[in-house]
Simulated assay, not measured.
Amino acid sequence: MLKIEKLSKTYDTVSTPILSALDLVVESGQSVSIQGASGCGKSTLLSLIAGFDSPTSGSIAINDYCLRPVKDPAHEIDNNKSASLQSKYVDEFRKNELGIVFQSYNLFDCFNAWDNIAFTARLKGNYNKHYQTELMQQLNILQLAKKPISQLSGGEQQRCAIARALVHKPSLVLADEPTGNLDEATSQAVSDILFDVCRKMNTTLLVVTHSADVALKADNPLWLHAGKLFTDKALTTPWSHSP
């Protein structure tokens, strides 16, 4: 489960907050898509959730982990599992809980497809050959296992990137424009696979996209505008979660 409360982000060089008291709750196994104009803060939001940046205020909770402002003296590290994370714990959080699908794939040219996908599971220490084989079969890339990355098409590379994000069984997958570099037909196929596999694995999925077709595949399509999330493009009523 992903729970974001009163999340704000302000940069010293910008007077208007990028994100302003933003709230979001995504239950385990559910999917959310976020659309919005360029520069509205979509990538900033993903960066904060992934722990690449620290919020100005507010909190981001994923299962037993909670990310808060690094310099917040009211939330020091303690021995409780749900204690706030300081920067030295963020890598552990990403390794245990997070899968990331990058628009630019971010695969290793020196590895073949199999070793690229296995990388995160080996890093986490839960590498399972049978599970990876099953996952690659679902993504229809098992036949590419021994091929160098340079010999794969864009759609094939993106499927490898999706498999790598899922192979260590994360609780949350963040996808940043996962079909932005693909043609329309390949985009539909790859996005269908991403949503379907996450649902089957009960993995929470958060997708940032400019594609309305991709966005509508999500259980909860949202728009980011003026630092807050809205339920539709009309941007009249901020999104809220009722338990």
Rank of each mutant, 00 (worst) to 15 (best):
N220E: 05
S82N: 07
Y127T: 01
L22K: 07
K233M: 14
N106H: 14
G99H: 11
Q143R: 09
L107A: 13
A215N: 05
A163Q: 07
K6N: 15
E5M: 04
L135V: 02
P69W: 02
S33L: 12
I4R: 00
K81P: 06
D72W: 00
S82D: 08
K233F: 15
S87R: 14
N220A: 01
L98I: 07
I193N: 04
L229F: 07
A161W: 10
K6Q: 15
K200M: 09
S104D: 15
Q132F: 09
C110Q: 13
L229R: 00
G125D: 10
E92L: 10
I62M: 09
A234M: 12
Q103V: 07
S242F: 06
Y105G: 08
G125K: 12
F195A: 10
T186L: 08
G39L: 06
S43Y: 00
V167S: 15
S33W: 10
P238K: 09
D64E: 04
E5H: 10
L235R: 11
D183V: 11
P238A: 09
S211K: 06
L7P: 01
Q138K: 09
D219A: 02
K200S: 10
N181W: 06
K124Y: 11
T186V: 15
S84A: 14
N181I: 04
P17I: 08
A185Y: 04
D232C: 14
K42F: 10
L224V: 09
F93Y: 13
S150Y: 15
H75P: 05
N202V: 05
E27C: 01
T236R: 13
W223F: 11
K9M: 12
S153M: 11
D115Y: 11
R159M: 12
G58S: 09
D12N: 11
D115S: 06
G41P: 02
L123N: 12
S153I: 12
A234Y: 12
L194H: 02
P178F: 00
L46H: 03
T120C: 13
N128A: 10
S20V: 10
M136K: 06
A145N: 03
Q137F: 00
K71N: 11
M136R: 06
Q35A: 01
P221F: 06
I100L: 04
L7A: 01
V197F: 03
V208P: 09
D72I: 01
A61S: 14
N181R: 07
S82M: 02
L45D: 01
L194P: 03
A83Q: 02
A185G: 03
